[in-house]
Design a protein around this nucleic acid. Structure first.
Lengths: 252, 252
DNA sequence: TAGTGGTCTAGACCACACT
DNA sequence: GTGTGGTCTAGACCACTAG
């Protein structure tokens, strides 16, 4: 990486800096290679450390860099494609080895989830009081890429009585198993940008507040929302794929 | 006497600040309302302006706030759902009024796009030299939500000769029209986080570098990639939806 | 022209990962 | 202990919008 001083330009320094570093990454660095530390980079470019950090932050947002406290800044590998298509019409936990159930508790659902669960119930129907909240982790190539909270109303798993079910991994498996008994009629998926909650951040090995892609899924059965999944994917390392090409038998 | 580990891990100030402001937004503010300016908010909370800004940045990332230079910080409306499902199997420009063609030029494709265009060609086939680059804008409720660059190799629109086609809006329409003649066999879609390029930012009324959701689509015809679309959605205001519920005739 | 958010500086200290 | 990135401060000036 060169040591050229920044020319005076109308565009912000951090923006120009980002471009310069980005080009250096392409031409002079290998994946996994460690960059000079922030204080040295700032001095080399003749800017304050905060300005240099603004450029690094953007490059990390774009998946070009990875920064770890106490270690350093490294060149990130290309993002991994993670399939999140709804083509297969399967319940969560049905034959997808990348998902690992961790735990389950019974809890009142958050307001946003409650809205999805009750959106299609008739007025006067029983309110959704408490739900099974299954916690799952998704890993690919040994790396955790997503943490999920799956909300299942008791009505969707009539074989399980909340009061009789001690929270824990065993309950998580039981809930997923019971779900398979319902006919799955459709799914509804949305993706948006969010920032990692403290618990998700811990399981994804990120700092709280890191940018994440939040995938919300409604599972439909019997004309109702039988379950709601809120999955949090690492935005720095993941590319979410929705290929439907496989349906048509065309090799990719 | 060992040093007993006191569990009080100091939460970063900006994180706590974010929580406090977030709760205030829920209880004390209406959508569209203007917050006190940053200098006053910082003074009110007893922190430096930079720290206050770190909290506001996260809230803007989550779509809770909207900040405009020279104007102020306002409470953002809920994100709008934008359908990006591939269920309809249609070419771009076929009967979707939300997309508006703007312009078209002939240009060599960027390296990343070239890789997608040539991934499935046989060795020895003609290289993709130059492509039609159609620029489109997507708007909902009068608001621009996405800017797209659609790359169409000349081989996909044999009715058009690059050398004879003056760049401009008319060419954009012509390319989209010619595309319809090909049989569409499938689509391949991916979503990832990015930051807005300068030109996208201008059309989306954002600052360069703003977080965006990048949707990359491959259109397949004749076993080949007939076109590649790179669409940049505003991450602050958009929620991308992939509903396949409509396929099954279930009302949402 | 006045007021806003955006950029930038030059420091300081802290939490964490290595050795 | 040493070195890294993460947080925080108290200023300054700039770019933009609106009255």
């Amino acid at each position: 990486m060169g040591t050229t001083q920044l020319e005076s330009v109308p565009e912000p320094k951090y923006w120009h800096l980002k471009t310069v570093i980005s080009e250096a990454l392409d031409s002079e660095f290998q994946v996994g290679e460690i960059l000079p530390n922030e204080r040295e980079l700032a001095a080399r470019f003749g800017v304050a450390r905060a300005t240099l950090r603004q450029a690094l932050e953007q490059l990390e947002l774009e998946g070009r860099l990875q920064r770890r406290r106490g270690v350093g800044t490294t060149v990130a590998p290309p993002r991994v494609g993670v399939d999140v298509s709804t083509a297969q019409h399967r319940w969560p936990g049905a034959g997808d080895a990348s998902w690992q159930p961790l735990d389950c508790a019974t809890t009142p659902p958050p307001a946003a989830v409650l809205r999805l669960l009750e959106a299609d119930t008739e007025p006067g129907a029983d309110a959704v009081g408490s739900v099974f909240a299954v916690r799952r982790l998704r890993a690919t190539h040994g790396q955790a890429v997503a943490a999920e909270q799956l909300y299942v109303p008791a009505a969707s798993v009539p074989g399980l009585v909340p009061a009789d079910s001690p929270a824990g991994p065993a309950l998580a498996h039981a809930v997923l198993h019971e779900l398979q008994r319902l006919p799955l009629e459709g799914q509804d998926r949305a993706v948006e940008l969010g920032s990692a909650r403290a618990d998700d951040a811990r399981e994804l090995d990120r700092l709280p507040g890191s940018p994440v892609l939040v995938v919300t899924t409604r599972y439909l059965s019997g004309g109702r929302t039988a379950a709601v999944s809120v999955a949090t994917y690492r935005a720095d390392t993941c590319r979410l794929t929705f290929g439907d090409v496989g349906d048509l038998g065309i090799a990719s």
